[in-house]
Amino acid sequence: MSKQRSRVCLQDGLKLDLNRLARRGFIGFGLRTAACGLAWHHSYWGEIASGTIEADMRDPHDGWLRIELGSFVQRITLMSRPRHFGGRQWFFVCPVRNRKATVLWKPPGASRFCSRQTWGRQVAYHSQFQDPNGRAHLGKERVKSRLIAGLDPDEWDLPPKPKWMRWRTYQRYERIFDHYENMLDRNLWSLAQRFGLPL
């Protein structure tokens, strides 16, 4: 049985992932980026928020990121630390805990973006509201979405290896997918036994 929802689901809110923002060109390490449009989408509700984001990361040690969503405005401090093999790794500084984070969350009803640790037991991930069967189905769908690319999702249970993916990575996804399949099979078997149904 799934848990009672006394906590807020993190994925129903907004997420700022520093590395993803850089990959998508919204910010640039070593650059000052002008305000540009940014939107958040939910798999069920569609677009849930939109606004602008700008950042200054010209200083090699610290910077800032400013986000504006309608009347909501937040300026977040950024810092960098040297990597072991050269270069620097950038982080958000959580406005509450004053600690490094690469991802900040603004759950539904929250007044600002903060690290996952700041929200503590007020929030939970989507999978934490699922029963074992739900988690297994969710896990299979996650694997499938990583592999599906431009293929028809209804045509494949487990899609073939994408051309760009290494075999070792694909085989890891296969093992994960099989693990979830086995979970569902065991649950179905125990359910059938409980009701005396032939399999």
Rank of each mutant, 00 (worst) to 15 (best):
Q4K: 14
R7P: 10
L10N: 02
Q11I: 03
D12E: 13
D12C: 03
G13Y: 10
L14H: 07
K15T: 10
D17C: 08
D17T: 02
D17Y: 04
L18Y: 06
L18P: 08
A22K: 00
R24L: 13
F26I: 04
I27K: 07
A34D: 11
A35N: 06
C36K: 15
G37S: 14
W40S: 12
Y44R: 12
W45L: 15
E47S: 06
A49G: 00
S50N: 15
D56A: 09
M57R: 00
R58H: 10
L65S: 06
I67F: 05
E68Q: 12
L69A: 01
V73N: 02
Q74K: 03
R75A: 05
T77L: 08
L78F: 13
S80C: 11
R81T: 06
H84N: 00
G86N: 03
G86A: 05
F91S: 01
F91C: 02
F92C: 08
F92M: 08
V93A: 05
C94K: 10
V96Y: 05
R97N: 14
N98V: 04
N98I: 03
K100Q: 13
A101H: 11
T102E: 04
L104G: 01
L104H: 02
P108S: 03
G109P: 14
A110W: 14
F113L: 08
F113Q: 06
R116L: 14
R116I: 09
Q117Y: 08
G120M: 07
Q122N: 06
Q122Y: 06
V123D: 08
A124E: 15
S127G: 00
H137P: 00
G139V: 00
K140G: 02
R142K: 03
K144S: 09
K144H: 14
K144F: 10
L147D: 10
I148R: 01
L151G: 03
L151Y: 08
L151F: 07
D157F: 11
D157I: 09
P160H: 04
M165R: 06
M165F: 11
R168N: 08
T169A: 15
Q171L: 13
R172N: 11
F177K: 00
D178W: 12
Y180R: 04
E181C: 12
N182Y: 10
M183K: 02
N187R: 03
N187T: 07
W189I: 15
W189P: 01
A192E: 15
F195N: 07
P198D: 02
